[in-house]
Design a protein around this nucleic acid. Structure first.
Ligand SMILES: [Mn+2]
Ligand SMILES: [Mn+2]
Ligand SMILES: [Zn+2]
Ligand SMILES: [Zn+2]
Lengths: 149, 149
DNA sequence: GAATATCCTGAAATTGAATTTCATCATCAT
DNA sequence: ATGATGATGAAATTCAATTTCAGGATATTC
């Protein structure tokens, strides 16, 4: 973690940026936070220890992390984007519409078939998104499942 | 086409709605328009023959068509949603980031594998979205490809 | 350790798609 | 025709996201 933060710091400097306390707090907060956070959630969490931090800085910092390749922007169609760390390998998502739970999965067979499809159309893929929406095991069974979110 | 419009009309009536000139124009315009239109595009097109129609009506009508199962809302991450007719069978999309071209494809193998994944997690799927972003054949070959959009 | 150029900040203003409000009009059942 | 209610367009509102801006922080040069 320390290593990671130092590495990012160095990359920012190398790109002509400067260090800042607020940004450091946001970056560390992001990697400590649970995955698939919204800006609003992260801002709230980060403000517990650094109440002066403005939302604009959180927005800016996550865009920066995305540019550097450390974060990925997600959109589950909720009206607000989410972000996840880009350190773990590629995966796709199952999103529960009842409780908001997000299950990650990776399926190399699907990925291979996607490559076949793009090749068949002479298409050069740079990214893809596969999300499956529905109800998780818990929400699908019990009618009165807990509402986490 | 006439059949379709009459059927929709009947469903709206059955649901307690009323006929309206503006809505009829929007609905017909939607099915005549090219696929994957934005509200803005459809509004502009519809206003050529019915300049009094407000954007709110176009928004409302497409939400209605979606509720009735005749339209699907799409989001290619452009900032504005797109809509497509839901009459043709399910398919997914290749989206060119250069020229905006959208290629449709269907791959039953991928769909089957998706079912396997959800089953493996006890997840009950209700919908999914698979989009592959990149460059279409034309944009990938020529540097100076035409910018359609 | 100044001096200075440049970056970064938080607050507030702005943007822009989407939705809602509201007074008026249109449609339907009687 | 009458009355009830749905639908409309314009304008207002919402809300996430971005931009603006003046002040503050940081790196670099001497
Ligand atoms: Mn994830
Ligand atoms: Mn399509
Ligand atoms: Zn659930
Ligand atoms: Zn293209």
């Amino acid at each position: 973690m320390k290593r990671l933060l130092e590495r990012i710091d160095r990359e920012i400097l190398a790109a002509g940026g400067k260090r800042s306390r607020s940004r450091a707090v946001v970056i560390e907060g992001f990697f400590r936070a649970r995955d698939h956070v919204t800006i609003e959630e992260l801002t709230r969490s980060v403000r517990e220890s650094a109440p002066w931090i403005g939302a604009a800085t959180v927005y800016r910092t996550l865009k920066l992390l995305e540019r550097l390749g450390y974060a990925k922007e997600l959109d589950f169609g909720e009206g607000a984007r989410r972000y996840e760390s880009n350190l773990s390998p590629h995966h796709d998502h199952l999103v529960c519409r009842q409780c908001g739970t997000v299950i990650e999965f990776e399926d190399t067979e699907i990925e291979n078939l996607q490559d076949l499809v793009t090749r068949r159309h002479g298409f050069h893929p740079t990214a893809h998104r596969l999300e499956i929406y529905g109800f998780c095991r818990i929400c699908a069974s019990g009618e009165s499942a807990e509402r986490v979110r």
